[in-house]
Design a protein around this nucleic acid. Structure first.
Lengths: 224, 224
DNA sequence: CGGCTCCTTGAGGTTAATCAATCCTGGTGG
DNA sequence: CCACCAGGATTGATTAACCTCAAGGAGCCG
């Protein structure tokens, strides 16, 4: 089998990266490519859940909507990550997903995927590992929400630094009001808190780039 | 094969309930029975994660500990439920677990379990489903923590009613300070909030039993 | 009757949301 | 080149939620 654009996209995900070529081909046969413009719903909280998705290009946001119209961002999905797996065996999606930019997705129907797991147990193990990771991330999210805003912000900045491979510096990839939503707060509070961190000599801010001045202090703050 | 106390215990979990007898026997061979007294640690946040557990009898609490000594209850585990699955493929436990009462547990080593999943893909699918359910529950926890305390309490009471099969009434199974921790608040606030619900004519309280007076009002409150 | 633990009640302080105004900053058109 | 916007970002003032600290009950078991 020769690599195709589709199998290359599938290998983006750690879920599928290590699969043998023939397993990957079987998977590619199930995958339904979807191209969506920016700010478009992928699925809606409450929709019957019969598929999960791999994001190949673009950006997607997973969010909870409340009756009163407020929304809270649960997760930002990046290329190579899957989303909606949580509902592989549930009735309805517990959250909504929408594109932030134009995006290329692959859709996997649950029934097809179940059959494939039975045929390829190794794939099941990989999915289990991916879900275990998600559980850990969600656990962290729960933990974080019990902390005051400055601690949440400190964690976010430290996480961003380590993600970007630059321990002393990081850049916001999204506008600040998105960061505020991700931290479960509002832009005003984010702005004030960033100001306090800066005045406290913990960080230096320059537009959307931040430099860690006092890493130990920032880490202490992150523990609340 | 004949039923044994061990296989009976294993069938308590929806994860294993539907397994064929020989699959269950293979599983029972892996399961290490553990008996623990009350208020004893099962595993500690940060421990190397090489096993998950099924609770057969008693009660277990999963909690996050903070540097400053505060703890937050993530989840109450009941007989028949598994815990620690989130870390089947992770390095370390992201949370601690401890018994609340004397408890009978079964311990499953990750390596053994992985081999079994490869041999019995159906088991992998079941585990995936169980983890999907956990993800949904955790999602709800995240959602709830963004709501004010009265809404969280209303949700808790309504959930309790439906769990106990008595739509108009429920009993607290744990002391109130445990409920407060579960809701991410403190006993004082819980007490005051219960008082407000009662004075608002939404519920009637009598010790640890609560009667729903105005269900519509309670459900409206639960939406924030 | 102590000595528990759990729960409740009160007063005060802190955090962070809300409302409202102002300030940039980049783009547009005169 | 310069007004003039429109959006996001900041700042200030106010308010509400909720935590903390502290002081009582209320039940329970020795």
């Amino acid at each position: 089998m020769t690599p195709t654009p589709v199998t290359d996209d599938l290998r983006l995900s750690p879920l599928f990266a290590g699969l043998a070529d023939d397993q990957l081909a079987a998977l590619a046969a199930l995958a339904l490519p979807v191209e969506l413009p920016a700010e478009t719903g992928v699925f809606l909280q409450g929709d019957p859940a019969d598929a999960f998705y791999l994001l190949a290009a673009g950006a997607v946001r997973v969010l909870k909507s409340f009756r009163d119209g407020r929304t809270a961002t649960i997760r930002h999905v990046r290329p190579g990550e899957t989303f909606g797996e949580s509902v592989l065996f549930n009735d309805a999606y517990p959250a909504s997903a929408e594109t932030m930019t134009a995006a290329r997705l692959y859709r996997f129907g649950s029934d097809d995927f179940r059959r494939l797991v039975l045929a390829e147990p190794e794939l099941g193990l990989r999915l289990i590992a991916a879900m275990a990771h998600l559980l850990v991330v969600l656990n962290q999210r729960v933990e974080e929400l019990l902390l005051p805003v400055p601690a949440r912000l400190a964690r976010y900045l430290l996480e961003l630094c380590s993600e970007q491979g630059t321990p002393g510096q990081c850049r916001l990839a999204v506008p600040k009001h998105e960061v505020a939503a991700r931290l479960g707060t509002v832009p005003e509070t984010l702005s004030r808190t960033l100001g306090r961190l800066e005045r406290g000599g913990l960080i230096a801010a320059d537009g959307t780039t931040f430099t860690v001045i006092n890493r130990a202090g920032l880490e202490r703050l992150a523990q609340q």
